[in-house]
């Protein structure tokens, strides 16, 4: 068991876009074995933080380490990332993508992916261009959860699917999650998702304003995380 081991360490992280500060002096330590909700309104810096951890954004101030590695080639082998946009070409089928993933990632479990696809009612030979937004989202999640990674980063994984499919996807995440790994999930749909988190992070104007064990927060505040969010981010 590697549960409880330090997985991510971020020190004094600041990121500016021209004259806008996206992240300001973020310090963060996360351990393995958790499902973490990364919560914040639009423009609070969630996607920027995710892109830095996954190595997509490289110019920033401060240090970021994933199991001691700077985001890059080594860390990418540990991290399975679901971006908030789709990266498929429309002529492709899930089978095509599955072969690509098999070539790219040594930790990819093809059988697991196909099983998951079928459970979610998808067909590996259907062209991506004929799929609905929700179907594409489900497929992308299957790909990402079929890697045997140390860290899963899911940026808005359930935005485009209906509430019934949402529950199904959350269960897919819970069933396929390896307890030695950590999942970071950003979302707007807090009330639908909060039952699967054990830790939450609130990001406001590029700063972490709340971090903690979700049940301890419920206990001390007497509120749901959704209610607390609405209070902290009241417009």
């Amino acid at each position: 068991m590697t549960k409880g081991k330090e997985l991510i360490k971020i020190t004094d992280l600041t990121k500016k876009y021209k004259n806008k500060t996206a992240l300001s002096n973020v310090n963060l330590q996360l351990e393995s074995g958790h499902i973490i909700g990364l919560l914040g309104p639009n423009g609070s810096g969630k996607t920027t933080l995710i892109k830095i951890i996954t190595g997509v954004i490289k110019d920033y101030k401060g240090t970021v380490a994933i199991e001691g590695n700077k985001p890059g080639e080594k860390s990418k082998a540990l991290v399975s990332y679901l971006p908030d946009t789709s990266y498929f070409s429309s002529w492709m089928t899930p089978s095509d993508m599955i072969s690509l993933f098999k070539d790219f990632y040594s930790d990819f479990d093809e059988k697991k992916c196909i099983d998951m696809l079928h459970k979610l009612g998808l067909n590996e030979n259907q062209k991506i261009k004929s799929m609905s937004k929700g179907m594409i989202e489900k497929f992308q999640l299957c790909l990402v959860m079929s890697r045997n990674a140390k860290l899963y980063i899911l940026d808005e994984p359930i935005g485009g699917v209906d509430p019934a499919a949402r529950d199904f996807i959350l269960d897919t995440i819970l069933t396929n999650y390896n307890e030695d790994a950590t999942i970071i999930m950003s979302t707007h749909l807090i009330s639908d998702v909060e039952r699967i988190f054990d830790t939450v992070l609130f990001l406001k104007d590029g700063e972490i304003v709340l971090q903690g064990d979700i049940d301890n927060i419920r206990e001390s505040e007497g509120k749901s995380i959704d209610e607390l969010f609405r209070e902290v981010f009241k417009c």
């Binding site: 529950d167 269960d171 699967i196 054990d198």
Partner: peptide, 10 residues
């Protein structure tokens, strides 16, 4: 955890 649909740590 899967049966009750909650986080394993919970």
């Amino acid at each position: 955890a899967v049966q009750f649909e909650v986080n394993p740590n919970t």
